[in-house]
């Protein structure tokens, strides 16, 4: 929760931000850090897309249980994104196929894009931030 929400940057400029997630959830801190940055960005009313490719698609799996490794289960947090008005979640079809995954395996509703659609989406962004 952030009192920052009351702040207005005054510029009123809305840019297209893409957060590109390419890492599996727990082996590195990228996934969790990326998610926190997205939640903070949500306070600034920007046009945010979250994209999951390569091992990044593993972040969204259902049935994650982190008790045994004593880390936070932030897979649940992806379901809070809707409440933050972050509704554009995309996954890469080829990355899903390569890992034997389908949309039914994922904890949130996503749009599955082909590599060409993903390429075009990336090309139209003002800012791409990679985790």
């Amino acid at each position: 929760m952030s009192d920052m929400d009351e702040m207005d940057d005054g510029s009123g400029i809305v840019k297209k931000f893409m957060f590109l997630n390419r890492k599996a959830p727990h082996g590195t801190v990228y996934a969790l850090e990326g998610l926190e940055v997205v939640l903070i960005t949500a306070a600034f009313d920007q046009d945010v897309s979250m994209v999951f490719t390569d091992d990044g698609v593993y972040q969204l799996l259902k049935g994650i249980d982190t008790k045994g490794i004593e880390v936070k289960d932030f897979s649940k947090t992806y379901r809070a994104l809707d409440g933050y008005d972050i509704e554009k979640l995309y996954v890469d079809q080829a990355s899903m196929d390569a890992r034997g995954l389908t949309e039914d395996d994922l904890i949130v509703d996503v749009t599955v894009l082909s590599v060409d659609e993903m390429a075009n989406l990336m090309a139209e962004q003002d800012v791409v931030i990679s985790f």
């Binding site: 009351e6 306070a43 936070k72 649940k76 947090t77 379901r79």
Partner: peptide, 11 residues
């Protein structure tokens, strides 16, 4: 449910 404390706006 979500493993985070919500932003004020979201709360």
């Amino acid at each position: 449910e979500y493993q985070i404390a919500p932003a004020v706006r979201v709360l």
